[in-house]
Amino acid sequence: MKSGLVTIKDIARELNISASTVSRALKNHPDISEETKRAVNELAQKLNYQPNAVALSLKQRRSHTIGVIIPEIVHYFFSSVISGIEDVAYDAGFNVIICQSNERYEREVANARTLLASRVDGVLVSVSKHTEDFQHLHNLQDNNIPLVFYDRIVPGLEADQVIIDDLDASYRATRHLIETGRKRIVHFAGPQKLLIGRQRKDGYVKALEEAGLEVDPSLIIEADSFEKARLAVMRLLNEKKKFDGVFATNDLTAIGAMQTIQKRGFKIPDEIAVVGFSDGRFSGITDPTLTSVDQHGYEMGTVATEMLLRRITSENSDYPYETRVLNADLIVRGSSVFL
């Protein structure tokens, strides 16, 4: 037998039967005898026969594959989302192609093209923090590929989406700091191009205003990484800026702030309290442990995938787009209160 992938014709040739008989035997067709079915399936297993996925997708007009565009897999939140996506997809008989934009617009465009060429049935998207032109996503929709956005959405682009109430979660996180007696709270903000970045800042501002505290623009700093937070804290301390609390847009930023604050001789939470966002795996092992907002990434992944599969498999997919808002919980630990 020739080398390479085994085909139905190869099995038919070995058993001296027709390719159509092999095809029907593999599908357990009632017209094929049990003896033939057994012979076909035993040889198929022996030869490690695999159906031609491309041919099946062309015939069925469905690839049973969904694509995922994710900003960064290294973040615990996004890896949790992937776990939820894969569990639901595989249980439903769908494969998953995961593409990482690495927070770059150009990579995201390339990801979309790859998924289109792969004939995926639908795509789950969380846009990069540098994406401002969304033509590549419109192009997917123009090719009848449904989209579901998770976490980071595109205002004005009609699609299903799964989010948390970032404004309310940030408001509650900042209010928690205020309730512990903090009056000068720094906000390390995410990119204001992203809706979640703006909403998390707005929640912070709302909590300060509601408490009658000054909103000092010099304490709102765009810093969404460990290194940016480290440099920002050093600058604030070098400039003798007084602050007694930090609310960071994600956990790695919060941890960068915590380590620098401690290296400069300040105690947490005695002198400066810190709250993060996403409740990743590191939040429970920092010293002190990090107070953080739990975004429930796994649940977001499962809900987003269920919405996408419903859109793919529904006989009538022309129903109104839906926005699902999940609850977010503030997990209080030692970085903001004495436990």
Rank of each mutant, 00 (worst) to 15 (best):
Y76C: 12
I70L: 10
T323Y: 04
V120P: 00
N327P: 07
R198F: 01
V274Y: 03
H187V: 09
D318R: 12
N143D: 10
E106V: 14
T302A: 15
H64L: 13
Q45I: 11
V293D: 03
A257H: 02
G212N: 08
K242L: 14
E179S: 12
A189G: 12
A53Y: 12
Q199K: 13
F226W: 10
V233N: 06
E299A: 12
L15N: 09
R324K: 15
R324W: 00
V81F: 01
Y105Q: 14
E103Q: 10
A25P: 04
A39W: 00
E222M: 04
I85Y: 00
S3R: 11
T253K: 07
V6I: 14
P71H: 01
G190Q: 07
D142V: 10
L177M: 04
V332I: 07
F149V: 01
T36E: 08
L177N: 06
A12L: 07
A207Y: 08
G280D: 07
L115A: 07
L252G: 10
F134G: 02
N316Q: 11
Q50S: 13
K27H: 08
V233Y: 07
I32G: 03
E210N: 11
F188G: 11
I185T: 04
N111K: 08
T131H: 01
L208Y: 06
H296P: 06
A117Y: 15
E14G: 07
I178Q: 03
E132Y: 00
E103C: 08
A25Y: 04
Y76N: 14
P30D: 04
A211L: 05
E14R: 14
R333W: 01
S63F: 04
E86H: 12
V215K: 06
Y150N: 12
S83V: 13
G122W: 02
K267H: 11
S57R: 04
S317I: 13
K228F: 10
V74M: 14
G334Q: 07
V293T: 00
Q262Y: 09
K201V: 15
K263P: 02
K240A: 12
S218Y: 02
T36C: 02
V275N: 03
S225I: 05
L237T: 03
A257S: 03
M258A: 02
H130F: 14
V120L: 10
T260L: 12
T65V: 15
S292W: 05
A25C: 06
D270K: 13
A117P: 13
I268H: 08
D216S: 12
T302S: 15
K27M: 07
L219S: 09
E158H: 13
I85C: 06
F266C: 08
